[in-house]
Each structure stands twice: as C-alpha cells, then as structure tokens.
Amino acid sequence: MALSSSPCTRAAIYTLANHAKITGYRIAEANRFLERQPIGTAAQGAGDDKDYKEPPPAPLFEPGELKSWSFYRAGIAEFVATFLFLYITILTVMGVSKSPSKCATVGIQGIAWSFGGMIFALVYCTAGISGGHINPAVTFGLFLARKLSLTRAIFYIVMQCLGAICGAGVVKGFQQGLYMGNGGGANVVASGYTKGDGLGAEIVGTFILVYTVFSATDAKRNARDSHVPILAPLPIGFAVFLVHLATIPITGTGINPARSLGAAIIYNKDHAWNDHWIFWVGPFVGAALAAIYHQVIIRAIPFKSRS
C-alpha cells in the first residue's frame, strides 16, 4: 500500500496543510499594517506610496504676487500682529520695571509668559492669512527652505519692522517718562556678559524657535497626526516662553529682529545701538541653522526651486 493512501497519513497531511494556511494568513495579517519609514534620501522617492503631499518649493521670484490682494492682506496681517506683539510685551516689561518690589509684579516669568502667550495667540489668529511669522528670523528660515518667495519674504520683513516700530511707539506715547527711564524694552547685552555670549544666546534661542516652527508645520506630520495643525501655535508660543526664561538675564531676549529694531528706534539711546547688530546676526544665523537642520538632516529634502 502507498504511504499517501493511508487514511492516517492523509489526515496528517490535511492537518499540516490547514495549519500552514492558517499560519500564513496570520503572518500576512500581522504584517499588513507594519509602519514603514524610509531612511534618509529614500524618503524622497517617487512618492506614489506617500500618505501626504509635499508642497512644491516656492519660486525665488513670483511677480504675479504683486497683483494679488491676498499678498497685501498677508502683509497687513503681519504688520498688525507685530504691532500688537510689541504693544503688549513692551507694556509688560515697563510694568515690571516700574514696580518697587519683585513680589508686587509678574517678574521675569510674567515677561516670558507675555511674549510666549502673545505669539501663541497671534500665530493662531494669523496663520491662515500670512502664516503667522511675526518675526523676520522665522520668515528668513522659511524662505531658505523655499516655503515662500523672496518677494513675499522681503515684504513680510518690512511690514513686521514697521509694526514693531508702531507698537513700541504707542507704548512710549502712553508713558514717555517711564519708557525712557527704564530702557524702553530695548535689547542689550547685560553687564557681566560678553558680546560673544549675547550672540551665542541669540543664535541658540532662535534655532529653538525656528526648529519648532518647522516641526509644527511639517507636511508629513500634519497628514499623519490630525492634531498637529490645530496645536501648531501652542509649541511655537511655548518655545518663545522657554527661550525668554533662559535668556532674559543675558540679552533681554531678542530672537526677533523686528522686536529689537522697534524698541531700539523708539528708545534711541546710544547703548541700545551698540549691541544692536547682535540681534540681527544672531537670529538670522540661528534661523539658517534650523532650516538646514530640518530640511537636510530631519527630512532630507533638497534645497531646490520649482522648475
């Protein structure tokens, strides 16, 4: 009698085949939803299997923007947001400065909350119109990453600086004596620190802010985590708060050239201008480093223009 004709043998073969079928099905099911994260430049493949769409790089020049009302509306939004930012934050600084006792005021923590809280609120309000930059360093970093054109970047920076000047000017108009007698909220390197210390603090502080902006607005994360776009203003504002806690004793915390320029112009004393270059060079270097780190290292996205 052949081995395959035995009833016991046929039953055993059937059992093994059925078991293999079930096992194979379970393995297929287990592998069905495996997370596959390509590494490095492999993440920039054909893109057919991506569950998100990477926005195309913005062109360097886009003359058509100059004919669009949305372009000017975005600039106005940046102006108003930066105006309100300086108005609230410099008033807070003046309130702390005039207090005879630290226990009778919000102190450094309150100043930090003022800056961070206003950024949180203003980014939330203006993100859908202009992107909610409110900071030339943020605009510069996003420009380097090709998130906006040079035309728009220059326009934003000009409007941000004008808004900051007007915001600080209104504070001085309210209480000129207090404003001029307490430094006007101008950024200077504090006594006991060198210019190198101040520059380093501005570079690292702006890196933290701009890196947070990139992470909070990442197209990949927005697609996979539905809560990211909703919560984007929160980590940005919180980053501003934390950086202020750390660097107010060193430079008063700039990390925003428009904020530093507005206070310096309205205060207009020699010592406010002596270190002013630090509050442009530091933030722009920090923003550039954050853009390079996020685009090249974290996302491996090449810096190239749209063809």
Rank of each mutant, 00 (worst) to 15 (best):
F61L: 08
E54Y: 04
G141V: 02
H19Q: 13
D218T: 12
F174D: 02
S68N: 13
G24C: 05
V106C: 11
A300V: 12
G200L: 11
A81E: 10
L289E: 01
I255S: 03
F61C: 07
R10N: 14
G200E: 05
L242V: 13
S260M: 04
R152C: 00
T206I: 13
R32Y: 15
I108E: 02
I154R: 00
A77S: 12
G173T: 10
G117K: 06
S130Y: 01
L66T: 10
G196W: 09
G177L: 05
G205M: 04
D197V: 03
Q176H: 13
V228H: 03
G181C: 05
P59H: 10
A58P: 05
L34S: 07
A112Y: 09
M159Q: 11
I278M: 05
A127R: 15
A12E: 08
A190P: 11
R36P: 00
A74D: 14
L91T: 14
G116H: 04
Y293D: 09
S4E: 15
Y25N: 15
G237V: 02
K53H: 04
V240N: 01
A246N: 01
L144Y: 11
V80E: 09
F207N: 04
P7I: 11
L245D: 00
V285E: 12
G262P: 00
G282F: 01
S97D: 08
E29H: 09
P136Q: 03
P257G: 05
G95M: 13
F33I: 12
N135Q: 00
I278T: 11
A300C: 14
Y124M: 15
G286I: 15
W277R: 03
R299V: 01
A164R: 09
Y211M: 15
F214G: 11
I250P: 07
A137I: 02
V213R: 04
I301L: 01
Y87E: 03
V210G: 05
M1V: 09
I165A: 04
F61V: 11
G185F: 04
V123K: 02
A190F: 08
A127D: 02
I39E: 08
T82I: 07
I266R: 11
Q37A: 07
G185L: 04
V96Q: 02
T126S: 15
S6C: 08
L231N: 02
T253C: 08
A263T: 15
L178D: 10
L199M: 09
A246E: 03
F143M: 01
Y193E: 08
K172L: 06
V123N: 07
K172D: 00
G40V: 06
S97C: 08
R224Q: 10
I154D: 00
Y179V: 01
A2C: 02
I157M: 14
Q176G: 13
L144Q: 07
G131T: 04
Y87H: 13
I265G: 05
G262L: 01
V228P: 00
E29N: 06
I27Y: 14
D48W: 14
K53P: 00
T206E: 07
